[in-house]
């Protein structure tokens, strides 16, 4: 309510209000300052400055000289190894989608009411997800020797971490009312999950599995670099022999295949959801 006796003082209303209060301005300036300082520090620390940048871009023109002409003789072996890469991704994705079913139930707090089991599963999956695919591959290749097996295990572990998070979150967001109804009608836990939860999460489950297959295709290329089989291994060989023409051919093949598979998988996922 306004007071009729109130007279506006000079400090109010007389000046045009500022677009943003000084506090917000100071904050933004501070953030900006920190970003720039950190950038300068990082470039100093990594030895990248403007001079390097321009020199670098000068060098970039050499890239074409080195990488072209593409060496087409590598095409035959490359396609064979490419299939190996795809097979690795298929096998690893299949096993991780199977294993993730119990794991994601253990990591969903609406299914697993045991505090300890729930948290320990979550913790393990969270740690798994921080390890880059290549590091996993280095470890499993070290354990199982050079070749596809170590690669498949690495991909399996890598995608299990991602899938477990995505699917346990989907399970947690499922509507629990049907489960209550089924329990009330005498269904046991397995039946209640199969009838109450599974139909709700199935579309996302399928979609996430395809998504993980896409990720695994890229990852299986990458882990080949550390000796885990497939086209990546071939790429690393050619790279270490400085066969840049062959490197370029292999990269071109990888590019085409990744684009095609992601396109198909994306279309299927659109159709499902």
């Amino acid at each position: 309510m306004s007071n009729p006796m109130h007279k506006p003082s000079l400090t109010e209303d007389q000046y045009a209000p500022m677009l943003s209060p000084w506090r917000a301005k100071a904050k933004i300036t501070m953030i900006f300052f920190v970003i720039i300082m950190f950038l300068l520090f990082s470039s100093w620390r990594t030895g990248v400055d403007l001079a390097e940048l321009t020199r670098g871009f000068g060098n970039m023109t050499q890239i074409t000289d080195k990488l072209f002409p593409m060496n087409m003789s590598i095409l035959g072996p490359a396609v064979g190894r490419l299939f190996e890469t795809i097979h690795m991704a298929i096998i690893a994705s299949t096993f991780s989608t199977l294993v993730v079913i119990p794991v994601s139930l253990l990591a969903a707090n609406n299914i697993t009411t045991n505090w300890f089991v729930y948290n320990i599963t979550r913790f393990i999956m969270n740690v798994l997800r921080t390890i880059p695919d290549v590091v996993l591959a280095v470890i499993f290749v070290g354990l199982f020797g050079i070749g596809v097996f170590g690669g498949i295990v690495a991909l399996f572990v890598f995608s299990l971490g991602i899938l477990a998070k995505l699917i346990s979150e989907t399970v947690e967001s499922a509507d629990m009312q049907p489960v209550e109804a089924m329990r009330a009608s005498g269904a046991n836990t397995i039946q209640a999950i199969a009838y109450g939860i599974v139909p709700q999460v199935l579309p996302q489950f399928t979609s996430f599995s395809l998504y993980v297959f896409e990720i695994n295709i890229r990852a299986s290329v990458v882990i080949g670099l550390v000796g885990a089989g497939g086209i990546g291994q071939l790429l690393m060989n050619q790279f270490s022999f400085n066969n840049y023409g062959a490197v370029m051919t292999i990269i071109a093949i990888i590019f085409v295949v990744v684009v095609i598979i992601e396109y198909i998988s994306g279309k299927i996922r659109e159709a499902i959801i």
Partner: peptide, 8 residues
């Protein structure tokens, strides 16, 4: 709230 599985 009926508690049906809506997608089924």
């Amino acid at each position: 709230s009926y508690n049906l599985v809506k997608r089924n």
